[in-house]
Simulated scan of single mutants.
Amino acid sequence: MDREPGPSVRIRLTLSYAGFLMVAGVLLLGAMYWYLVSSLPDVTSVAGGHLLIRSDLLRGFLPAAVAVMAVLLVVGLLGGWILAGHMLAPLTRITYATRLATRGSLAHRIELPGRQDEFRELADAFDGMLARLEAHVAEQRRFAANASHELRTPLAISKSLLDVAHATPDQDMGRLLDRLRVVNTRAIDLTEALLLLSRAEQRSFTPEPVDLSLLAEEAAEALLPLAEEQGVTIETRGEIARANGSQALLLQLTTNLVHNAIVHNLPGHGAVWVDTAAGPGTVTLTVENTGEKLGPDFVSTLTEPFRRGTERVRTDHAGVGLGLAIVQTIAQAHHGTLTLAPRPAGGIRVTVELPAAAPPVEP
């Protein structure tokens, strides 16, 4: 926004201090003058037998008052300038940090010293904002780099396959087409996952009551063939758990959790448990699975984009590495939380906690 130039805050504060001091001086001198006029007699005898005439005293009062006001003006301007500079010094540091941030330098911090006051609250809030912004930018850059790498991989494989086919035209074209189909499917899955992640981050949906228990049953039924193929049993249980949100996104969240629990499991004799519960003000969806024993530090990294859990059991259905990242983003878009914890016997326990929807109004 274009603004017309004006006096600085320091000048305005200086004039305000000086003006206040001048007004106080005028009021004080006016009170003294009123006292001389109303209280002193025309002639007053003082020590030594001298007479003090009130008219002479009043005539001498005006030059003295003017001199006092001149001194007050000088003191007010100089003192106000110094005091204003001292008071605005923290604001200067905040302005400098803001300008650095606008130029892309997010590592700078104000770190305003001294006791807590309004300026220090503002500086601390700004430092906290810079820290969160720096972490967010770093995360976005990391995500962009990983996404570029992941998208480049199927394209590079396709190019290699086509180069080989061009160099050796007598090779089995059916096998080539099958491999290209697999690579293309992976690229499509990754692109759709990125679009879903972006949609969840933008919260571009209209909230409506959604029963998580129904979504759990739907996801388990849809993934039952995959579970049977992997030799994994699925058990759903729990109670009605209504949350406000997007049914499509919450179904994607549930499906991702159940899919991860199936493919990262013990081959041939694994198990998955899906549970829903309703509490005071919140509802929870919990997905547990069997598997290898995992450390808490490793489990805490599984929500990072493109982290596929290389130390866990891998299958051809391991996905593109965005499953839990999408789950976390969808949970946050619904003002919820995602918690991952290793199970003592092996595998992990994933809990999504969301605000509960208002109970339906009975007619």
Rank of each mutant, 00 (worst) to 15 (best):
A24Y: 02
E134P: 05
G114D: 04
R59M: 13
L100E: 15
L57F: 07
A47M: 10
F143P: 12
V74E: 03
E134C: 03
R93P: 08
S105L: 10
V23M: 07
W81A: 14
Q116P: 06
R99H: 02
D124H: 00
A131Q: 02
Y33V: 12
G49W: 05
Y96C: 01
M32C: 14
G60C: 02
V23H: 11
L91P: 01
R103G: 00
L77K: 00
G19K: 02
L100V: 03
M22N: 15
V37D: 13
L28M: 11
L21D: 13
Q140W: 05
Y33N: 12
A125Y: 01
H149P: 01
L36F: 15
I11K: 11
L27T: 08
F61W: 12
S8E: 12
A135N: 10
F143T: 03
L122T: 00
E121C: 07
R93Q: 14
F143R: 09
G80Q: 09
L21S: 12
V74Y: 09
R109W: 15
G128E: 05
Y35S: 08
P113M: 07
L29T: 10
I11A: 10
Y96G: 03
L77A: 08
Y33T: 10
D117P: 04
A89P: 07
P113I: 01
A97D: 04
P90N: 05
A147I: 12
L13C: 14
P113R: 05
R115N: 04
V46R: 15
H149C: 03
L112M: 09
M129D: 07
Q116D: 10
G128L: 02
L130H: 00
S16T: 14
T14H: 14
G128K: 05
